[in-house]
Write a protein that binds this DNA or RNA. Structure first.
Lengths: 220, 220
DNA sequence: GTCGGATTGTGAAAGTGTTCACAAGCATGG
DNA sequence: CCATGCTTGTGAACACTTTCACAATCCGAC
């Protein structure tokens, strides 16, 4: 079967959250219809997403909340603990250390690195900031699986290179620059400014701009 | 012409960044080919993206770096200042206040709100934290255009309701819950945990899991 | 045991986004 | 002024994603 799309994976993550809260509420079964409504998608979409991985439902009844949750957890790798390295002990980095949702899903930030020697040795929410040069050593020692980059734009590419050299294959990048992944390496770029830009585009577009009917857009 | 896709807008944001750095470097013209290579897309993609909004290039020569940059800025609404309200003065909120890229693109966080009365009145990087109940008043007074939610999961929906009631139409949500937008309201959800999950999925998938060939995935 | 109501799983259809391929068109040089 | 080389802009082809629609099938009631 073909590769699973990113959109499908994102939705599975979302279904997972709904299922967890349904389970807390004591509900035993859920239909594709119910799940779909919670996420603003069609029931067919829910079923297609799940069908990429197997058959988990019972016709006439729906899906077992508990079983489906566990199944998705296994698909997404949420059934285990992942050790995460964080590079960048600035304010964003510090915020990420205490971001509850990471820990809740099994992503444990086990080491924080920085290249600023004034910071090295200090603590951030219980974790001692380590010299970035100790990265390769610590990746092995702590069995680190994933890395998060939270450094300024200009440092991001060289940090990524270091991470890859240390053997890491999966990187989540918060620096506002799109890092390109070499083959075998997966980099996900989260650019918070770009998210805002998508909103401001709509703010402009809704008011005055209509594609194809926009004289003032011609080059200056 | 039809609605512009989200992917196109995201790419325009990225082209914009490249153009800014090309301009700094003194380059005057750029071809779709050159721009495409910087972003790992095809030249045709670049041209299609731009052609949604008009014709900005010169055949045989390419695009004027400066003009194209200005044009994209106008499309995305980056040619002006947007006043942004931030709700949630926790660690993520504080990090966002000092996130340079926002200011650089014209997004100015002009007010910070929280419902924790212990925080209200204190300062975060120069901004006094305001009582969330003053939101409607301040939205008008400060002419706020956009809002960012950086509160815990459970508070996110009620904060969104407040923002909408105060007249805001564009919301960027960092709480790990997908807020649904009512008609006329645009909400963008940034879920950092989901980004990590997409990575852990691949970590699991690359090693052991192949869709359709995965006995241990059957429900427990 | 079988009938009825409900819901899944899935091919096929529709819709969207991306790439191809080439005519159109500009600048430069002779 | 025309030929040449290069790059845009765009219709058509292709690829991917979502939705539709319905057969398959399970549960529970009678």
């Amino acid at each position: 079967m073909s590769r699973i799309s990113d959109a499908t994976i994102t939705r599975l993550s979302q279904y997972y959250r709904s299922l967890a809260s349904l389970e807390e509420g004591g509900q035993e079964m859920v239909s594709s219809m119910a799940l779909a409504r919670k996420h603003g998608v069609t029931p067919a979409q829910v079923r297609k997403d799940l069908s990429c991985f197997g058959q988990f439902g019972t016709r006439g009844l729906g899906y077992s909340v508990c079983q489906l949750k566990e199944t998705i957890a296994r698909i997404l790798g949420l059934h285990r603990i992942w050790n995460v390295a964080l590079v960048g002990a600035g304010s964003l980095g510090s915020a990420l250390i205490s971001y509850k949702e990471f820990k809740r899903q099994g992503f444990h930030i086990v080491a924080v690195f920085d290249n600023d020697l004034d910071k090295v040795g200090k603590k951030r929410r219980g974790l001692t900031i380590l010299d970035i040069r100790r990265l390769p050593q610590m990746v092995k020692k702590l069995d680190i699986n994933l890395a998060i980059i939270a450094v300024p734009k200009d440092a991001a590419q060289s940090v990524a290179d270091l991470l890859i050299k240390a053997g890491l294959k999966m990187i989540l990048n918060f620096a506002p620059i799109s890092l390109k992944a070499s083959p075998g390496i997966t980099i996900r770029n989260v650019n918070m400014a770009i998210e805002l830009e998508a909103l401001s585009y709509r703010l402009v577009a809704d008011k005055s701009f209509r594609p194809g009917n926009n004289p003032q857009l011609t080059p200056v």
